[in-house]
């Protein structure tokens, strides 16, 4: 029977070993797999390589795994807003590879589309290009960037079904559908879980074929980094 349902986050991460390479969805704290990160902290596995656009903040998101020294290497595009991250980086405890945001997204896309590499103009003429193969197309230079090879992808969706079909919401989509395609094993946590057949096939962002395990997350905090509002008087 095609049923990818697991009971909870702890069961979902049961076989993630020390030294695993993980893709983690989210942009800033928006759309991050909160339940799965907590389960990794409880599990206490070490020497992880985490590929994620950002590294959370000190006490939330991937920041929680930095506090417990579980991360050996971060591959990200932007890592501000995190004092513990900075401390570990400067002391040499943590390795960091910074890559352009579009390159990060497209390397996930390539993995999910079964393509070994892509050419992108991002980083040409910068230190990002060091040691990379370059090629000209129509008079413009591009860098060869490889598809990610990751053991597990941990993503967060809004709705999902027992076949692993996923629907994301608003800008919480970000890297999640791309990473869902790119993991050797993909684990999805969802806010709302329904039986297969309950979702409109036309509305599905990630087809269930990419998802190996799914569960309903709980106690979503959905922390906001910068609450910006306007007054009722303004237009």
């Amino acid at each position: 029977m095609l049923n990818k349902l697991v009971n909870n986050a702890d069961e979902a991460v049961r076989d993630i070993p020390d030294g695993a390479v993980l893709l983690l969805g989210g942009f800033g704290l928006c759309g991050i797999p909160e339940n799965l990160i907590s389960a990794l902290v409880r599990k206490g596995i070490k020497n992880l390589t985490c590929i994620s656009n950002n590294a959370g903040v000190d006490d939330f998101g991937i920041g929680l795994m930095l506090q417990t020294r579980q991360v050996k290497k971060m591959i990200s595009s932007y890592v501000g807003e995190n004092a513990e991250f900075e401390r570990q980086l400067l002391s040499g405890e943590l390795e960091v590879e910074l890559i352009p945001q579009g390159t990060l997204a497209t390397r996930c896309l390539a993995a999910g589309y079964g393509m070994p590499a892509i050419f992108t103009p991002a980083g040409v003429g910068t230190e990002v290009a060091d040691g990379k193969e370059m090629r000209d197309f129509n008079g413009k230079t591009y860098l060869l960037e490889s598809a990610f090879e990751a053991d597990f992808a941990l993503v967060k969706a809004w709705k999902g079904d027992t076949h692993g079909n996923l629907i994301f919401r608003a800008t919480a989509r970000n890297f999640n559908p791309l990473m869902a395609m790119a993991g050797k094993i993909t684990i999805a946590e969802v806010e709302e879980l329904v039986p297969a057949g309950a979702l409109d096939p036309d509305q599905i962002h990630t087809p269930g074929i990419y998802v190996n395990r799914i569960f309903k997350g709980s106690n979503y905090e959905k922390r906001i980094e910068q609450i910006t509002t306007r007054n009722k008087q303004e237009n």
Binding site: S76, S77, Y78, V79, G80, L98, P100, Q101, G102, T103, T120, A122, G123, T126, V128
Partner: peptide
């Protein structure tokens, strides 16, 4: 260094 984010793209 905080990173390039999307600037290089």
């Amino acid at each position: 260094v905080k990173g390039m984010g999307g600037a290089m793209d």
